[in-house]
Amino acid sequence: MTKIDLTGRKALVTGAARGIGAAIAKALTDAGASVMIGDVLTDLGQETAQTLTSGGATARFVKLDVTSDSDWEAAVAATVKELGSFDLLVNNAGIEITSLVIDVKAEDLRRMFDVNAVGTLLGIKHAFRAMKPGGAAGKGGSIVNIASVAATIAFPAIAGYSATKSAVDRMTRIAANESGKLGYGVRVNCVYPGLVPTEMGMKLANDIVAAGLAPSVEAAVGDVIGQTPLGRLGEVGDMADAVVFLCSDAARFITGIGLPVDGGMGM
């Protein structure tokens, strides 16, 4: 992508130990930002931070369970203290539990809503408190929430997950509205990633087969590609570049939007 300069920006990225989150953390550091990786996967998160540091970036790790108010408070405080400020938040942490509607389990729904929806809104809350005038950082900033193409299409076997990502979209728009009206100086946007063949993405493909909706993983993936006008699956870099853009001054007059990064699947 065209080089975007985020030199001097301080970011906290959740769920950044692996997958799309790790790619976002790397893209932010490549653009010049310092990054705090927040994740429940302590060993892998520390390893990811060390890999970025070894490449010349400024990266740290903090243990963060996004469903915990106290963890959020500690993670934001650590970001401000260790990086020197806090002006970018990427709410990437999320889980997906596949189920046909006829087989859905209440405990699975609650777990997805707790991580994907509650975790995201708690992140926005604590970022607002730190970034707004008078906060610990107090210079405004940008929040990017990771929703999903699942928030925009009716894809089988992910009703609960789709609901949580639709919630992320609505929370994004309301938070952007509140931030603007109350003078927080924080832009809030979200992106809708398409299917990416990460561990989580390929688990979905296997689950689709197990649910009897496709004869093989190859067929399940092929069906997604067939629904995608650009004719391929997404790559982690596609998602990371979109996040970097929304974090940057190139998006300075953009707030309250959902940006599809799905190859046209959700059109």
Results as ranks from 00 to 15, higher is better:
2 T>C: 10
5 D>G: 10
9 R>C: 10
10 K>R: 15
11 A>I: 02
12 L>K: 11
12 L>W: 09
14 T>A: 02
16 A>E: 11
17 A>W: 12
17 A>V: 10
21 G>E: 10
21 G>R: 07
23 A>S: 04
28 L>Y: 03
28 L>T: 02
29 T>L: 04
29 T>P: 04
34 S>R: 12
34 S>E: 10
39 D>W: 08
42 T>C: 10
50 Q>S: 13
53 T>S: 12
67 T>S: 12
70 S>F: 13
70 S>E: 15
72 W>H: 01
74 A>H: 09
82 E>I: 00
88 L>P: 00
88 L>I: 03
91 N>D: 08
92 N>M: 05
97 I>R: 01
99 S>L: 08
103 D>E: 03
106 A>R: 15
109 L>Q: 15
112 M>H: 04
112 M>A: 00
114 D>Q: 09
114 D>N: 11
118 V>Q: 13
120 T>F: 09
123 G>A: 02
124 I>C: 14
130 A>L: 03
133 P>H: 14
139 K>I: 14
143 I>A: 07
145 N>S: 09
151 A>H: 08
152 T>Q: 15
153 I>Q: 08
157 A>P: 02
159 A>V: 05
160 G>T: 13
160 G>M: 15
162 S>A: 03
170 R>E: 13
171 M>D: 11
175 A>V: 00
176 A>N: 03
178 E>L: 09
180 G>S: 09
181 K>Y: 15
181 K>F: 14
183 G>D: 13
183 G>A: 03
189 N>I: 00
190 C>A: 03
197 P>Q: 13
198 T>A: 06
202 M>C: 07
207 D>P: 01
214 A>Q: 04
216 S>P: 08
216 S>N: 13
219 A>G: 09
223 D>Q: 14
227 Q>T: 11
229 P>N: 02
231 G>A: 05
233 L>V: 07
233 L>S: 10
235 E>S: 08
240 A>T: 06
240 A>W: 07
240 A>N: 06
241 D>E: 15
242 A>L: 07
245 F>M: 01
245 F>R: 01
247 C>D: 11
247 C>K: 07
251 A>V: 00
253 F>S: 05
254 I>C: 01
262 D>P: 04
264 G>P: 00
265 M>P: 01
